[in-house]
Design a protein around this nucleic acid. Structure first.
Lengths: 344, 344
DNA sequence: GCGGTCTTGAGGTACGTGCCTCATGACTTA
DNA sequence: TAAGTCATGAGGCACGTACCTCAAGACCGC
């Protein structure tokens, strides 16, 4: 009945491998002084017993918390500010879980600053860096460097392939664009659809556009895409771009970037609020306001809280040396109408 | 610089309160033999030092895992089967976290069976019961009884107010219905909207209908609701109900319950697939197929994985005696088109 | 003052892992 | 062959909490 299989411990592994506890410890924690042959025996025993290190005991024994540092772009980008909030929320919860979270703000779009922030991390207090990467070789090199010093690196929101980053946590932006296309296609009578990007040189916006246009072309051929224009996540520039687009008779607008206050003003000033269907990105104060007033129909969101949680789960797994185990579940693409807004 | 405030331990609490370690331990773990006056001193010290029990050490010391038992309705309901899958998925992850999960299937709609399953839980191996409650006084009494025996109870998906359950984990079904109304209103040309419920006597379906009708009335007065008919989460009965509704010229259908294979057959047989906009509930194999084929436009989902994760977080908090701390974040109402389906 | 109960203190061991020291061989190199 | 390096074993202490035993004092009613 109650034949509960006790979890294997380091003692079991030592016995199974025919070595001492000290040797198992050396292997587990990557300390030198073990022949490859012996290390293999230990590895086999670990596999045979399905041994997994007990995180509780491990953190307890190190007598310090797992150090995770988030590097987030500074600035007026509403989504990034939301990320910082999500980290703070989560930090409150993790106090009881032996995870200590640090957030560092790095000047946005400044690859040099990001690289030096990465390099300045101290392996003594930081086990894992979670970073919103920008595409740059300096950043790539910095990631490789601190990886060698023993800090695991995870990219967040925007990835940096080709670096030593161990995982990427974020959404599939092509799918997000396809989703926007499906919604716009169903919502809008045939006609012109305005497209606004933050910047066409950002990889994620590029991918969103790709997915969006593919769906419209394949399934809603009655719609004609107007644009894209760039808004640079800036209210004034986005307002100007929207006004420019609205000179044509649009039935819908898809904004892939930020600058929502500007977009809403443009709709208001042209008298189009509520008459043009609008699909937006990221739940922020501005987009919530837009949903509430009816100016925005749907917000596509990447759920900062979920991303933070996923990043921390990855960080914890990496700290235990569970490299190639299972990959974290992909972040879901959230859709919000006024009626299913979370938290009130 | 590095003035890290060490977390307070039981030793600190004992010193601060001017009592012994044993007394602190008695208070923390609810053991008898402490005067109220002394317990108050300890409680004050805990507050003054912001002491929080270290979960790692706590679970380690008990030398057993936190026992959580899920009680899920048995049967052919696709959503409940999905819940069971989600529990299994999560159980694999929690192996390293000293949480041991048990799932018990209970005959659906059978309050007597549920009550006796609850009563048979053993506090020695079960710290927390997570239960999909059915509205019945026997169940209520069983919950009260095992609560007194030291098992914390959490309701899942469907709540049971008035019982000793400590928390409810699930979505806001009125908001879910409102969301469906907003989508149908935007998707469909003015006309008849068919409504199908699982059972009108289920509280959650009742709430969905309420929200749905409120939005249609207030914002889309051109739509006329036809039904609701009941499908009892059964394929054949749902098919019959859908065919009955489709005798009228509908532009949309909102199915609040299950039986999706039947609904899809009905659409197929009446030649309405793709011509009538369909909003459904719960991501299952059947609704995924409907999304893929274009028969279903949107699925409203309550994310079983999220609910399981939330339930476990609550269970853990309760096990540490963090009763009235902060309430768990409400479960989000997920929306899925073909294009933002998770996992593949 | 006696026997009883209630409250509290003191101290130990245990959980599984991390990290340290010291000892013991085996093998290498000059 | 002596000195040195390397691989490994043995053992112990620590982390913070749980849970146990034993003893001592306080207080009670009779």
């Amino acid at each position: 009945m109650d034949e509960v299989k006790r979890r294997a411990t380091v003692h079991d592994v030592a016995r199974e491998a025919g070595v001492s506890l000290a040797t198992v410890d050396r292997v587990l924690n990557g300390r030198p002084g073990v022949r490859t042959e012996t290390a293999d025996k230990v590895a086999e025993a670990i596999k045979a017993l399905d041994f997994r290190r007990d995180l509780s005991a491990s953190l307890l024994a190190r007598a310090r918390d797992l150090g995770v540092t988030f590097l987030i772009p500074d600035g007026r980008n509403e989504f990034m500010l939301g990320l910082v909030d999500a980290i703070a929320r989560r930090a409150r919860t993790t106090k009881g879980e032996r995870i200590s979270i640090t957030t560092k703000l790095v000047h946005a779009f400044d690859a040099t600053a990001l690289a030096s922030a990465l390099s300045s991390l101290d392996p003594k207090s930081c086990d894992c860096a979670v970073v919103v990467a920008t595409e740059d070789d300096k950043v790539r090199r910095a990631i490789d460097q601190i990886s060698r010093r023993g800090i695991a690196v995870v990219t967040l929101v925007s990835d940096l392939p080709g670096s030593a980053r161990r995982h990427f946590v974020g959404i599939d932006n092509v799918a997000a664009g396809r989703t926007a296309g499906s919604l716009i296609g169903r919502f809008c009578p045939a006609g012109g659809i305005g497209l606004i990007a933050g910047s066409l040189s950002l990889a994620d916006h590029h991918q969103r556009r790709e997915g969006f246009e593919a769906v419209l072309r394949a399934e809603f051929p009655g719609h004609e895409i107007v644009g894209p224009l760039e808004g640079f996540d800036d209210d004034l520039k986005t307002e100007a771009a929207a006004i420019e687009l609205l000179k044509q008779p649009l039935t819908g607008i898809y904004n892939m970037g930020g600058g929502y206050a500007g977009l809403l003003r443009a709709l208001e000033r042209t008298g189009k609020t509520g008459k043009v269907r609008v699909v937006a990105h990221e739940l922020t104060e501005a987009t919530r306001a837009g949903l509430a007033s009816g100016a925005i129909d749907v917000v596509i969101d990447q759920n900062p809280d979920g991303e933070i949680a996923a990043a921390l789960a990855v960080a914890r797994a990496l700290a235990l040396g569970q490299d190639a185990e299972r990959r974290p579940a992909p972040i879901e693409i959230g859709l919000y109408l006024r009626d299913n807004l979370p938290r009130g």
